[in-house]
Amino acid sequence: MFDFLHKYASPRNFYDFAGILIPWLAGVTVVLLAIGLYQGLFLAPPDYQQGQSVRIMFIHVPAAWMSMFVYMVLAGAGAVGLIWHLKLAEMTAAAAAPIGASFTFLALVTGSLWGKPMWGTWWAWDARLTSELILLFLYLGFMALQAAIDDPKRAARAGALLALIGVVNIPVIHFSVQWWNTLHQPASVSSIAKIGAPAIHPSLLWPLLIMAIAFTVFFAVVLLMRLRAEILHRERYTHWVAERIKS
């Protein structure tokens, strides 16, 4: 296990490994998106209350899940970087931030586009919406902090601390619909334990899950692309990078 870690956690091996992985994962993303979009737009029935607007769910919910999942990846990588000074972990945190910010932005925009016809408003200062907006600011704060500190080691440490403090916000987002009386509806797919009997029909659940997996694999693709660029940048004075650049 440690040998395995040592081998693939070395930036050089990871760079080559990621290069092989990216086209495959990109192919999987395209196939999953095609299936998810077909099911979501053509097969899923309109909702009896929300009509066709329910189709926004297949974008909105996966985007919102990703906004939190990517944040946990960022904070987790930040923690590993803080504790073991693993360069690859520091780079993972930095590479994940703009992707997570984009998913958070998408969740907010699609939420707004769904809220207008269903609630009659683009925005409300409701607990769920506000905590998701704070998540966007956490991502942007992390990115600004990284950009403001020149020394990559210090930037990684400061960023990881900010990210770890911001983790408090994740349960707040998740439980906000239970703790407070929000305009936002509670979860329909609430936990793994209830996945056998979620409060959502399979014809809606399948496209939702497929889109969620598609977004997750897409995240992996972009993360690996960004990591490869970061590895080249941080290892720019090494012999192996010079070799890769020549070819």
Binding site: P46, G51, Q52, S53, R55, I56, I59, H60, A63, P98, I99, S102, F103, F105, L106, V109, T110, L113, W114, K116, P117, F218, V222, M225, R226, A229
Partner: peptide, 26 residues
């Protein structure tokens, strides 16, 4: 889209733009 064209297609367009920009930026 049953009268929700702006909202539904707006959401899917936003998703397409966000995914595309992620790849372009990387």
């Amino acid at each position: 889209m049953g009268g929700y064209a702006l909202y539904v297609w707006g959401s899917y367009a936003a998703a397409a733009i966000v995914l595309l920009l992620n790849v372009v930026a990387a």
